[in-house]
Nucleic acid binder design. Sequence first.
DNA 1: CTATGGCACGGATT
DNA 2: AATCCGTGCCATAG
Length: 478
Amino acid sequence: MLIRQIQSVEVRPITTAHITKTMFLLGLSTPELHETIQSELSSNPALEVIEGRFCPSCQKPLIDTLHCPICSRPKNLSNDEPIVFISPREEYAISYRIDEEVENSFEETSVECEDLPVYVLRQVASELEKADRPIAAHILTCLDKDGLLRTPLIEIALYHHVPLSRVEKVQRILQYADPLGVASSDPKQALLVQLDVISQTRNVPPLARRAIEEGWELLLHHQYPELAKILGVSTAKVKEIAAFIGKNLNPYPARANWGEVHQPTTPYREAYYTPDIIISLLNGDENAPLVVEIVFPIAGKLRVNPLFREGLREAPPQKIEQWQNDLERATLFVKCIQQRNHAIVRLMHTLVKRQREFILKGDAYLYPLTRASLAAELDVHESTISRAVSGKTAQLPNGKIIPLAKFFDRSLHIRTELQKIIANESQPLTDLELVEILKARGYNIARRTVAKYRAMEGILPAHLRSRMKHQKLPASIE
DNA sequence: CTATGGCACGGATT
DNA sequence: AATCCGTGCCATAG
C-alpha cells in the first residue's frame, strides 16, 4: 500500500494552496465539481479538455487513453482487490434529488420491495383494457435499468399486430404511474411527464417545458448561454430553470433508491438519482472483482494546453505576466484535481474492499466502520474522509443508489437483524423481549435503543403489530 | 403495572 | 467545536 502510494503521488513540493484547494475539491459532489471545472475552464485559456475514448473491448469510458483499467488488469490479482478508476461521464453532471413532496408520494404507494415491472403493472392494471395488458407487460419487460424504454414503439406494435397509436396510448398510461416518467422512450420524455404532473400542484418556471423540449442537450452540458439565446431570456433565468429541473425532476425514473422501503424516520431519507460512484460486478460474477467507477463530470481529461505553454515564449510583453499567471493557475488546478481523484480512488479502494460483503449481499453484512478508523488505515486526516464521503452517493451493483455515508453506519447490521426477528416472530414481541433475543445473538443494546431502531425502520410497537404476518398484498387488481 | 415514546445528558464521532 | 447516537429517567397510554 505504502509503495503504491509513493509511486503514484508526484514528488513535487506540496504547497498549502494545494492542500486547501484539493480539500475543497474533495468535498464537492460530481455536479458541483462540474460547475467548478466549467468556470475554471472558461476563465483560464491555459486549461483544456482532451476528449476521452472508450475501451475497444469493454466499452468503458477512459480518462487515460493508453490503457483500460479493467482490461489491462493483471490476471494474478486476488478477486478481493477491487478495480477502482476515474470514469469520465459527462452525462452525470446534473444532480437530481427528490425533494420532500415528491418523496412523500413515493411513500404512499411503495409498500413492498418488488420488481419494478410488477409494481407498475399493479398500479395501472385497472386503467387498462384487457386487450392492452399484454402490450403493457411487453413494454415493462423491455425497460432498461433506468426505467426507460429503449425498444422502438413500432417494434412492439408490429409484434402485437396493433396500430402504433395503441401502443402509444398504453405508454402514456404507464408514464403517469408511480416512478413518474417510467417507460418513456428517452430522458426528455420522462422529464416532460414529470413536469406535467408537478405543474398541477405548484408553480413551475414558465419556460421549463420549452427548455426541456428544445434544449435538453444544451441543458445536459450546462451550455446555458446558448440555451438562453434560443429561449430569448437571460442566462441567469436559464440557470434558475436548470436548478429547478435538477432539483425536482429525474430523467431516469428507476434510478432512485429502488426497493428501499421508504419510511418516515429512515435515516437516509434523501434519494438521489445520479451517483458519484458506480460500483458494478465484473461480468456479473459473484466471485469476480468489483469494478468501481468514480464519476468525473467532463467528457475527458483535464490538462494544461501545451500550445499555450509554447505560446508563452512569444507572448507580447504586456501580456506576459497575465499569461504566466494563467499557466500557473492551470497547473495548480490540474494538479489539485488529480490529487482529489487520487484521494477518492484510494479511499474507495479500501472502502469497497472492506465492505465487499455489504455491497454484494446487502444491509445485514455491513461491517460497522468509522471514518476515523479508515483515516488511520489510510494515514490521512479524518476530515479528509469526512469531506470525501459527505454529500456523495454510490450506485450498487443491484442498481440502488445510496449515500456513501451508509458505508459508515454503526447500527445498520443490528437493525436488519431486528427486522428479520420481527418478520419471523409468531406473536408480537415486546421491546424487552427483543433485547433478550438480540443479546443472545451477540448484540448488546439497551431496551430504549431497540425502540429507536424500530422507529428508524418504521416498525410499529408490539401492541399495534397484529399477527397478520406472511400475508402478501391482497388481490387488489380488478 | 407494563410497554413505549419524549427529553435530555454524556461520550463518541466527524 | 459541532453533531450524532445510545441510554437512562420519567410521563403517559393501554
